[in-house]
Amino acid sequence: MRLEAELRAKRDAGRKLLVPYVTGGLGDRWVDVVAALAAAGADAIEVGIPFSDPVMDGPTIQEASQAALEGGVTPQGVVGALADSDAGVPLVVMTYYNPVLHAGHERFAAALAAAGVDGAIVPDLPVDELDGWGDAADAQGVETVLLAAPTTTDGRLAEICARSKGFIYGVSLLGVTGERRALSDMALTMGKRLKEATDLPALLGVGVSTPEQAVEAAAAADGVIVGSALVRRLLDGGGPEEAGAFVATLRAALDRG
C-alpha cells in the first residue's frame, strides 16, 4: 500500500500532490523521462501502456499512443522497463481493460507487482465491472485507482471512494484528456465533492494543463494529475530535460500555492 501511504503522508504534511503522466514507449528515452519527472518533484508517476483504441484520450495522448505502438512497444516492454528503473517514487500504470483481460487478470497483476509498480488506472473499467481485475490486483498488492466524474451520482461516488485504492481520481470536466485554455468550473465542484466523500488523497485530472490551473485545482483537492501538457512537449521533440523543467515549474507553483 505504498502509493496511498506515501501520498497520504505527504498530503498530511501540507504538500500539494503532483502526478505527471507519460506514455510508456514514447521515444527512446521515456524511462529517463520518468526519472527526470521524479527528480523534478513528482509525488508519483503515471505511465501509460498504449492501447490501439484509447476512448478516454484526446488527440495528444492518442498521437503518443499510436507513435509508441508504431515503435513496437508492448505491455510487457513497458512493465519490464519500469522493473529496471528506479524512480524513487510510486509508479502507477494507466491502460485500457482489453490488454489487461488479454494478459489475464492474475498474470497482469503479478507482472506489475514483480516490476515494483504500485498502482493501476483502467479508465474503461468502472466500479460495477471491477471485480475480476480488482480482486487479482488486491491479491498482489497493486492499488487500483478509480475515477469519479462530474456526472457521478452521490450514491455511486460513495461506492467508488470505498473501492478505490491509492488515491481517488476526480475527472475535472466533461470530456477526454487534453489541454484546455482554462480550468473547468466543474473541477472545483469535483474537488469539493471528493473531499467531502473520502479521506483518500483526492487528485484532479483531465484538462489540467498549466501551473496556474494546477494551483487553482489543487486548492479544491489534494493535488493534480497533468498528462497532455507534458506529453505534447515530448511529441514536440522534448526529452527528459524539457519534461523535468516543465514538472519543476508545476512543482514550484504548487509549493508557492
Partner: peptide
C-alpha cells in the same frame, strides 16, 4: 456484454 466505459457515461 457488460458496460465497460468511462465513469462519465455511466449515469447516461
Amino acid at each position: 456484454g457488460g458496460r465497460f466505459i468511462p465513469e462519465t457515461l455511466v449515469a447516461a
